[in-house]
Computed example of a mutant assay.
Amino acid sequence: MSETKKDYEKIEELYELYEQKIYYVAFTILNNIQQAEDAVQETFIALYENLETLHGFDTEQLNRYILRIAKNKAIDSYRKNKRHVTFLEDYRKEAQELSDENIEKWEQRQISEIQIDSLLIVLNDSYRQVFKYKIFYNLSYLEISKRLGITEATVRKQFERARKRVQTVLGGRQNDESKRLQKHV
């Protein structure tokens, strides 16, 4: 009989004798059917890899050895679960904070754009277009001049006049909108 066949028969014999005991040990630690089944598989893989060690054990030593491996595999899985749960909790917390922050920024931007759109009614079409390209799309004066087919100097002057007009409509106050407008100069 070949060595491989003997090894296979030995593992098969151990499986018949210990599979339920290993499962019980793993399940009491993990409280999860699938993870307990995985721990059983990992235990038998470890046993197969250390099969030569088992030949020197009597029945009592073999029993303790196998159940200790099962317990260690289950504990490793439990620890891995704990790290995973902690990671997920941290991730969820960060994602929620980011989500809240992004929603708040989006709401502020929406309000700002709506307010700016209502302010732009006071501007003529040419000024309004230059103003939107500069504020909403953050285009440079050169990019705006190319899009509109006018000189860069004209774009600068129209934007400056549009910005002043909007600040006048805002009442000349230094609020968030006028600070935002000055930032784009």
Rank of each mutant, 00 (worst) to 15 (best):
A95I: 09
E94P: 00
F57V: 02
E89T: 03
T59Y: 15
R79C: 11
E89K: 04
R83C: 00
R83V: 04
N102K: 07
H84G: 01
S99M: 14
D76T: 15
K93Q: 09
R64A: 05
R79Q: 14
N63E: 11
F57K: 08
R83Y: 02
E89I: 03
Y78A: 11
E101F: 06
D100F: 07
L67Q: 04
H84S: 07
R79A: 10
N72C: 14
V85G: 00
V85H: 02
K73G: 07
L62C: 08
E60T: 14
F87V: 02
L62E: 14
K93N: 12
R79H: 15
L67R: 03
N63V: 09
I69P: 01
K82I: 10
E97C: 03
F87A: 05
N72D: 15
L88W: 04
S99T: 14
S77T: 12
K71E: 15
H84P: 00
V85T: 02
N102V: 13
E101Y: 09
R68S: 15
N102Q: 08
V85K: 03
S77I: 13
A74G: 12
N81M: 06
I75G: 06
Y78G: 02
L67W: 02
Y65M: 10
E60H: 09
Y78T: 05
L88G: 00
N102M: 11
S99R: 14
E97I: 07
D90P: 00
R92Y: 04
I66L: 08
R92T: 06
N102G: 05
R64F: 09
A70H: 11
E60F: 08
S99H: 15
K80E: 10
A70K: 08
T86A: 06
E89C: 00
Q61N: 13
E101A: 10
Y65N: 05
N72G: 06
L62G: 04
R92A: 01
S77K: 10
Q96I: 14
N63D: 11
L62M: 14
V85M: 06
R79Y: 15
N102D: 09
A95L: 10
T59S: 13
I66D: 05
L88H: 00
N102S: 10
